[in-house]
Structures are given as C-alpha cells and as structure tokens.
Write a protein that binds this DNA or RNA. Structure first.
Ligand SMILES: [Mn+2]
Ligand SMILES: [Mn+2]
Ligand SMILES: [Zn+2]
Ligand SMILES: [Zn+2]
Lengths: 129, 129
DNA sequence: TCTGTAATTGAAAGAATTTTTCAATTAGCG
DNA sequence: CGCTAATTGAAAAATTCTTTCAATTACAGA
C-alpha cells in the first residue's frame, strides 16, 4: 500500500526521497494524526518537509486533511468513510456505511453539481456513557 | 432577533456592552464571515474583544464556528442547515432539507449516542458551470 | 440619580501554527 | 559515475489566536 503511494509520487514526476517515505510510513501507522504526532513518528525529517510532503500527498489524493474541532489532522485517503467524534473523550471513529440519501439531496435541482461530501457525527462514544 | 440574543446574554449574567452588540450586528449582516470580515463591520471593537465575544456567543448557542477548508468562519446559529461549497469560486450556500437518513445511521448499534451532525457538500455552483 | 464593584475592554506581549527564503544537498537520469 | 533539477531544512517571517493586566464601564442596589 505504501508501494502504491510511492508509485503515484514517481508517476507524478516527484522523487521518492527517504523523508517522503518516512512521512508516508508515519501516516500508515495511524489515522487522524496531528502534525506533531506525525512528526514524532518520523524524527529526523524537518518540520518544513513534513508540511510540504503532506501538501504533495494531498495533491496526489493520497492524503486527506481533516478540520474537526481541534486543529488539523491527516489521514490516508482510503475508501469513502465518515467520522463519529466523541465530545467527551475526543475519540474519532470511522464508519463506512454512508447514511446519505441521494434522492434527498436538494441540490441537483438548484444546479449545484455535487462532487463530494463530508459528514461528521458528534456525540458520546460507548466508553464514555 | 438581536433583541433575543441580547436577552440571552443578559439572562446568562453577562453585560450587554456596545462592543458585544456591535459584533452581534456584524454577524447579523452576513453569514459565514471570517474574523477579519466581522472586524471590518465593527471597527473600533478591539481584536481580543471580538474573539472573546465570539467565544461567549458560541457558549450561549447564538453563534456557530465553521471549519470549512479555508480558515475559521462564523454564523448566527439559526435553524439546522447544511452547506454547499463551490470548489471553484468558494461560494457557500445553505440548504435546510437534511438528506440524512436516520435509519441508515449505523452508530446506534455500536452504542454511539448521536447528539448532532454536520454535513458539507462540495462541488460546483450554478454560476461556475 | 448616584455609587460601588465585579465584569469587561484592549494594548502589549506571548504562544502556536504555518509559510517563505535560500544555500546546501541529493535522487535519479543519461 | 557526473550532472542537474528537485529537494531539504535552518532561520526568519507571517498568520492566527491567547494571556496578561491596568484602566474603564455596565448595572444592581442604595
Ligand atoms: Mn477517517
Ligand atoms: Mn450556514
Ligand atoms: Zn468518548
Ligand atoms: Zn461557484
């Protein structure tokens, strides 16, 4: 799966440097990490390089940046999924089944071309109840 | 409508200062403003006071903070609604009809208590097509 | 209406986060 | 290998938000 991402980088004309692959490996270890969490997993890679790599991976569609309540978080952009955020402990869990009813989307009527969507559910997780 | 908000502030034991009502008036003029847009509508109110007022109004449930792609934006927290963001011109439009199918929410099963949700739709607006 | 006081304000300093710059290094092609 | 354009990262700058604290003020009670 890292191979695929590295291939995409090379295919885009970008070099597969040790720094870039280190950031990729860090991202593969856990979803929804903050910048500092990512950095902790690839010490030795400069701050600026981490930012630039995240940008690059974002443009390549490999990584997605999340803006949930607290600061920026990053995740490997795998299958379409959504997030359930616990307002008590901050835990972020994922779910794949998309509860959006496309026939209810009132936007097509108003000539808005829907390309994508993002849905976040807030509440309390099992552990916090 | 501003009266209602001012009443809520007084009711919460907070003073209705000219600065706070100026920020409220600024917010009432347009939805989804950035901090600097709000500030431009109430010159004379200090930066710190604007931040603090937005916090206060947020706690009172009068104002909501949005984290769409570009920086923080603020809106009067009126009825439940969602956002359609044009990826071309950045325009943010609202729609009230909620296309969420509650029976599809796979979270109850996993003991997650859903309190609220946020849904954003990205694409191209009528003008940009 | 006046006063006392706790709440509020805002200038300044500080913290946190992200971006720009640019000289030195290096991946990968030939 | 050797070349060169791409990449890196330390330092400085920009941006955004928070803390501090002395001065001001809203408003409850007299
Ligand atoms: Mn996720
Ligand atoms: Mn809105
Ligand atoms: Zn929890
Ligand atoms: Zn548009």
């Amino acid at each position: 799966m890292l191979e695929a991402a590295i291939g995409k980088m090379r295919g885009g004309g970008y070099k597969a440097t040790p720094q870039r692959t280190a950031v990729l490996r860090a991202l593969a270890e856990e979803q929804h990490q903050s910048l500092e969490e990512i950095r902790a997993r690839c010490p030795g890679v400069g701050l600026v390089t981490v930012y630039r790599t995240l940008d690059l991976l974002g443009e390549l569609g490999i990584v997605r940046r999340l803006d949930l309540g607290d600061g920026a978080r990053y995740e490997m952009a795998e299958d379409h999924h959504h997030h359930a955020i616990c307002e008590s402990c901050g835990d972020i869990s994922e779910f794949e089944k998309c509860p959006l009813d496309p026939t209810l989307l009132p936007l097509e009527a108003s000539d808005f071309e829907v390309r994508s969507h993002s849905l976040e559910v807030y509440g309390r997780c099992a552990a916090c109840r």
